[in-house]
Amino acid sequence: MSAGARAGGWLARHLRATPTLLRVGFASMVAYRAEMVVWILTASLPLVMLALWNAAAADGPVSGFGQAEFARYFTATLVVRQLTGAWVVWELNHQVRTGALSPQLLRPVHPLAQNLAETAAAVPFRLVVLAPILALLLAWRPDIAWLPSPTQALLGLLSVVLAFLLSWLVQAIFGMLAFWLEQSLGLFSLWFAAYAVLGGYFLPVALLPGPVREAAAWLPFQATLATPVEVLLGLRDDPVHAVLVQLLWVVLALGTCAGMWRRGLVRYGAVGA
């Protein structure tokens, strides 16, 4: 069998398995619903940040952001952060350390593909939990509501999907570091800190001091959060360019991910698991 045919067979098998994987993922979400709700609610930092910026803008707009703009920005941040949430870095760390990965490797489905399907299956659940929070925010400040133009909506959706993939890939990459380091959650925390400041989580990127903002434009952090938020809200002059940059980061991360998996598995086997 040629390599091409083998890859084709691999892809076809995974495509066939996808609906089942999604169903299983959703079922496990429902089984652990209470835990899921709590996890979702812990990502409340955008609201804490909103309170600060809201007070800062009480006497007038801050660099073009009024109170309504801040409310809209951090609401969108809260939603996009939820939709792009993953937990593969914790999962891989646990599975590599305890050896729980071994039985998974025997299955015909790639362990990471299964995790990706579970992560995707959690999205509708996250939306349900978010709904009451969004309703409260809307009651507090009705001018949050906005209707994106069809182009904004379409590009925004694409941007959210790319951000979802990139966030998951980054977590997978950090998770796979566990093949070499035993424990990579600390390193991931460092990534998260940079993401919070440079990726638009703590504040709109436009409000970063000049040199920091320029440096941030060359880093992958915005592509996981700020880009979809800004495209959805129509804050970008160049939405198509922004989405293409995201695509570039996804391709890069996918390549890194594939390479690391191949080499990491060799390491994993060598440990004698």
Partner: peptide, 17 residues
């Protein structure tokens, strides 16, 4: 790093207000 992350947003806010 996390402690720096707590202080940093405050510094950014007071850049503007």
């Amino acid at each position: 790093v996390a402690s720096v992350g707590v202080v940093l947003p405050l510094l950014f806010v007071y850049e503007h207000a």
